[in-house]
Amino acid sequence: MKLTMLMTQQAQPSFLQIPTGIMDLSGLRCRPQKEKVVVVMGATGTGKSRLSIDLATRYPAEIINSDKMQVYEGLDIVTNKISNEECEGVPHHLLGIVDSEADFTARNFVSTASLAMKSIVGRGNLPIIAGGSNSFIEALIDDNNYEFRSRYDVCFLWVDVAMPVLHQFVSDRVDRMVEAGIVEEVRKMYNPNCDYSKGIRRAIGVSEFDSYFRAEYSSSTDYRVREKLLSEAINEIKINTCKLACRQLGKIHRLKNVKGWKIHRLNATSVFEKHGREAEESWVEMVKGPASVVVNQFLFNFDHSRSFVPTTSTVRAEKRAAMAAATL
Rank of each mutant, 00 (worst) to 15 (best):
V38I: 11
L126A: 02
V170L: 14
E273S: 11
E101S: 15
I53G: 05
E179D: 11
V121C: 14
K243Y: 03
L16I: 13
G199T: 03
F272M: 10
E318P: 03
E184C: 06
V178L: 04
G276F: 01
L3A: 02
C155F: 06
G45R: 04
D160L: 02
G47R: 08
T112D: 13
N65P: 01
K198H: 10
G45I: 02
Y72V: 04
E85A: 13
V271Q: 10
E147S: 15
L249C: 08
A317D: 13
A279D: 08
A11G: 10
V178Y: 04
C246S: 14
A116F: 05
E280H: 13
A317S: 15
R58A: 11
R214S: 00
A322Q: 10
F136E: 01
M286E: 14
F148N: 11
V174L: 08
V170F: 05
M177P: 00
E185Q: 02
H264N: 09
E281W: 09
V71S: 03
T241I: 04
V178P: 01
V154Q: 03
R187Y: 07
E86G: 08
S313T: 13
W158Q: 07
S49I: 09
I252Y: 00
E216I: 09
L94W: 02
W158N: 11
V39K: 00
F300D: 06
L6K: 08
V309W: 09
S111Q: 12
N125W: 09
P164T: 07
V287K: 07
I77Q: 02
S111P: 07
I82F: 10
W158D: 07
E216R: 10
K188D: 14
E179F: 03
E216S: 06
V186E: 01
S133W: 04
S119L: 15
G276N: 09
D142K: 13
A325H: 12
L230V: 01
A325I: 07
F298Y: 06
T312P: 01
T20N: 06
I97Q: 07
D67M: 02
H92M: 12
S313K: 14
T221W: 02
L229W: 00
W283F: 14
F156H: 03
G45A: 08
E73A: 11
N235S: 15
S220H: 11
V174Y: 05
T8N: 15
F109N: 10
F209N: 09
P164L: 05
R316Y: 13
G131V: 07
D67V: 06
S307I: 08
L75A: 04
N301M: 12
V287Q: 03
T44H: 09
R29S: 11
T105C: 08
R247S: 13
L299S: 13
S83K: 10
K228F: 08
T79I: 03
R277Y: 12
L244I: 02
R151T: 15
M41P: 00
G276E: 00
E179R: 03
I18L: 15
C194T: 10
Q17P: 01
S231Q: 05
K259M: 01
Y59Q: 03
G47P: 00
R50D: 11
W158M: 08
G250P: 02
S114V: 11
G122Y: 01
T4L: 12
S218L: 03
F213M: 05
M163R: 09
